Simulated assay, not measured.
Amino acid sequence: MKLQRNGRTKALAIGALAVVSSLTLAACGSDNNSNTTASGSSASAASGSSANAACAGASGQLLGAGSTAQANAVTQWVKDFQSQCSGVTVTYNANGSGAGVQNFNAGKIAFAGSDAALKDTEIADSKKVCTGGQGIDLPMIGGPIAVSYNLPGVTDLVLDGSTLAKIFDGKITKWNDPAIKALNPSASLPDLAIQTFHRSDASGTTKNFTSYLNTVAKSDFPYTPDKAWPAKGGQAANGSAGLAAQVKQVKGAISYFELSYATQGSLSTVKLKTASGDAVAPTTDAATAFIASAKPAGTGNDLALKLDYNTTAKGAYPLTLVTYEIVCDKGNKADTLPALKAFLNYTVSSAGQQSVVSLGYVPLPADLAAKVKAEIATLA
């Protein structure tokens, strides 16, 4: 973890407290259900969207951990699933993609949420706990990564990849820099220091964000994309909720996190000037257009995707992630396998996918969802 600047410790502690690091929803009928939802978001989803979850004899406790990007979606999925499958208790610890994969490869959980596909070394490690098999990536939901900022009086900011890369590498340090002015000629940009915030924990969101910067502006952001923040400088906070809290509190702040956090916090978001020449806002429609251009990257049972950050598709928002559930293709624990398959089948169902649209997530394309369903059926 990077050291925070003096004077930020208290603020970052508040941000850390804003992160709901775990969610445990007891079985249907528990009085605790209304008090244990991640980030308080599930109430905003449409009711009645949990129709026909197939419990398939599932029972017991199902443990998962990882991505904070999907925490709001998982909260809703668990609530809906458990309203019908009352014999199952699903617990998801939103401790970041990196920690989730580590937990999975240590055999502590049945599934991990990650905003980045498994690396070769992580797949090799998974074979130690997936007896006769390995960890695989199952795409589950998509969503835009918002670049959010706190700049009073500026509500329609446009940035391109090069300018954004220079900001997060400390090469552009003032909001009235000529490069920002050129992209926003009519905006009243203040002579204010830019305060960049990045994740302190290993994060798939960071991997996606740094992959975007390194792809579209490699000379301005020459660092190898990673779950751990690779550049120098900036300030750190834990989890997407921690970053959103900093943007909310600090004038001149800019950071990156899932659109749902920006929506919840009523935070301004950047329009990205893309390879098509358009300035595109982070909307679900724009993210859908981007995901549709993704290509398969996994082999065998693995359904990992390759995202084209330099897409020229009109109206596509290129800073979009697909978050995965990581499971064993073979070697799952017999006592949790029925619950795992039942829960995943609900999350990828039409009802499950639609239940989180109002939270800022993007459903999988129908053909990809069908592939995920087929793969879930083969888990052993």
Score class of each variant (00 low, 15 high):
140 M>H: 14
356 V>P: 09
86 S>H: 08
32 N>S: 08
88 V>Q: 00
349 S>H: 12
331 G>M: 14
125 D>G: 11
39 S>C: 06
131 T>A: 12
295 K>L: 11
112 A>G: 02
88 V>E: 00
198 H>V: 15
330 K>H: 12
288 T>D: 04
162 S>Y: 00
335 D>P: 01
327 V>L: 06
252 G>E: 03
330 K>C: 07
12 L>H: 06
352 G>S: 14
213 L>A: 07
227 K>A: 10
167 I>K: 01
148 S>L: 08
283 T>N: 01
30 S>H: 01
272 L>V: 01
311 T>V: 03
214 N>C: 09
9 T>E: 15
209 F>T: 08
235 Q>K: 12
174 K>E: 12
98 G>H: 11
153 G>W: 13
361 Y>K: 05
235 Q>E: 15
97 S>I: 04
353 Q>P: 09
54 A>W: 12
220 D>R: 02
372 V>F: 12
272 L>D: 01
172 I>D: 03
44 S>R: 15
57 G>M: 09
102 Q>I: 11
27 A>L: 01
214 N>Y: 03
13 A>N: 10
300 G>F: 02
155 T>C: 05
366 A>H: 12
375 E>V: 12
39 S>N: 14
330 K>A: 10
249 Q>C: 09
120 D>H: 05
223 Y>S: 02
1 M>N: 14
254 I>A: 06
114 S>A: 13
242 G>R: 09
326 I>W: 10
352 G>Y: 08
54 A>T: 13
143 G>C: 11
224 T>Y: 03
247 V>K: 13
274 T>E: 01
56 A>F: 11
204 G>N: 06
197 F>C: 11
338 P>R: 04
255 S>F: 05
173 T>Y: 01
21 S>P: 05
118 L>H: 05
137 D>L: 04
154 V>C: 05
205 T>G: 04
320 T>G: 02
315 G>C: 00
126 S>R: 05
342 A>G: 14
211 S>L: 07
10 K>F: 15
230 P>Y: 01
160 D>N: 07
298 G>P: 00
232 K>S: 15
133 G>R: 11
366 A>G: 10
218 K>A: 12
255 S>N: 14
198 H>N: 15
189 L>D: 14
332 N>D: 15
96 G>T: 14
163 T>R: 05
24 T>P: 02
123 I>K: 13
246 Q>R: 14
248 K>A: 13
146 A>N: 03
286 A>L: 05
27 A>Q: 01
8 R>W: 15
5 R>I: 12
311 T>F: 03
106 A>I: 07
62 L>G: 06
315 G>M: 04
257 F>Q: 07
310 N>Q: 13
286 A>P: 04
60 G>H: 00
243 L>P: 03
47 S>Q: 07
367 D>Y: 13
42 S>N: 10
43 A>I: 11
215 T>S: 15
69 A>V: 12
50 S>R: 10
176 N>S: 12
37 T>L: 15
155 T>V: 06
188 S>P: 05
364 L>I: 10
67 S>K: 00
55 C>A: 03
229 W>V: 13
196 T>P: 14
96 G>H: 09
135 G>Q: 11
225 P>H: 04
109 I>S: 02
38 A>R: 08
94 A>F: 08
19 V>Y: 06
14 I>N: 12
80 D>P: 10
50 S>L: 05
110 A>P: 03
233 G>S: 13
360 G>D: 00
254 I>K: 03
380 A>Y: 06
329 D>G: 14
12 L>G: 14
367 D>V: 04
366 A>M: 13
